[in-house]
């Protein structure tokens, strides 16, 4: 192989604007699906036209949770399961930020499940990306709340006898206003969904089914990363707008993917402001407005008052 010793791989990498190249190499295994989702996320942010300074990422703990440490944004690697409440605090303290939560299935729906359902219920303006590899990757392949019935995991060595969550259904039932699911085969669609979610006001949830090659794939004798992609190729079916009650995943069964929910509803902060403005009237100063927004509002109000005077 002809290696150019002078090449500056880090700088030349198309992702270098987006990644902390000084932290490479990353910890993820060969064939792991997480990297595809991170790349799709980078593409989405690039295409969204958002100012990168105004996007923050929060992760919990896990292989997926390491994402926050590699992405060149204001980034928080928090505690296991607590990414959503930390992100909630960030968003509410600084509403002009776009806050993205990027974490694993165990993190978001096992230990962090309570936060997940409540952030969805509040329609908190967060974009939540869940890499669902059906396992606790970082701790060595234990069963999670999404492991399909009968699949093998290190703590269900004779197969999983629990029922798994269907995450799009859970998110939808709890009040999420944007819900999509893809597999790591659908790189472009993941990216398009994340972009759409970033521009959506409210709780948006994107589940990406992705292989944990080292643990889930191997323990279940499902082959490597390529075999996983082949499975997705054969068994993922795009059905937009399908009723989320119908998107369960059986072990190595069909995977319904697509955009399932996309609706407008006031966010948590919209409601705070609307409600206080209704109850308290003019006395209430809207919370979380940026200075230009406040100035524009004050100007509009002054103009309206002047116009009203003129009319008399």
């Amino acid at each position: 192989m002809n290696v150019n010793a002078n090449a500056n791989f880090a700088q030349d990498n198309p992702m270098s604007q987006f990644l902390r190249m000084e932290r490479m190499p990353h910890i993820w295994c060969p064939g792991c699906g997480i990297g595809i989702v991170v790349t799709a996320f980078a593409e989405a942010i690039k295409k969204s036209g958002l100012d990168l300074d105004k996007v923050a990422i929060v992760s919990g703990i896990g292989c997926t949770g390491r994402t926050a440490g590699y992405v060149k944004l204001d980034s928080f690697h928090s505690t296991h399961g607590r990414a959503i409440p930390l992100a909630t605090g960030l968003k509410l303290a600084n509403p002009e930020m776009k806050v993205v939560v990027f974490s694993g299935d165990g993190d978001l729906t096992g230990i962090g499940g309570n936060h997940f359902i409540h952030a969805a219920r509040r329609n908190m303006d967060l974009t939540v990306v869940c890499v669902n590899n059906f396992t606790y990757g970082m701790t060595g392949g234990q069963v999670t709340p999404t492991t399909p019935h009968t699949a093998n995991a290190s703590t269900t060595p004779f197969g999983n006898y629990e029922y798994p969550f269907s995450l799009p259904f859970l998110a939808d039932a709890c009040g999420a206003t944007y819900v999509a699911r893809w597999t790591s085969l659908h790189a472009r669609q993941i990216s398009a969904s994340i972009k759409e979610a970033l521009n959506h006001r409210g709780f948006s949830f994107i589940e990406v089914i992705a292989p944990c090659t080292t643990l889930y794939q191997r323990r279940n004798r499902l082959g490597d990363g390529l075999d996983a992609l082949e499975y997705y190729q054969n068994d993922a079916e795009i059905v937009h707008d399908i009723d989320t009650r119908l998107v369960d995943i059986d072990y190595q069964g069909k995977i319904k993917v697509g955009k399932f929910v996309h609706k407008e509803k006031p966010t948590y902060l919209d409601n705070v402001n609307q409600h206080y403005a209704n109850v308290l009237g003019d006395e209430y100063q809207l919370y979380g407005k940026t200075t230009p927004e406040r100035e524009a509002e004050a100007k509009a109000k002054a103009e309206a008052e002047a116009a009203a005077k003129g009319a008399v």
Binding site: L86, T88, L90, A93, Q285
Partner: peptide, 25 residues
Amino acid sequence: GGLFIQMEDEIASIAALIGGAWGGQ
């Protein structure tokens, strides 16, 4: 001119404080 949020539990409350502090409050 502040914000109060009743979180789903105390774990969430203190996590939100960490976010809130780095949000500038």
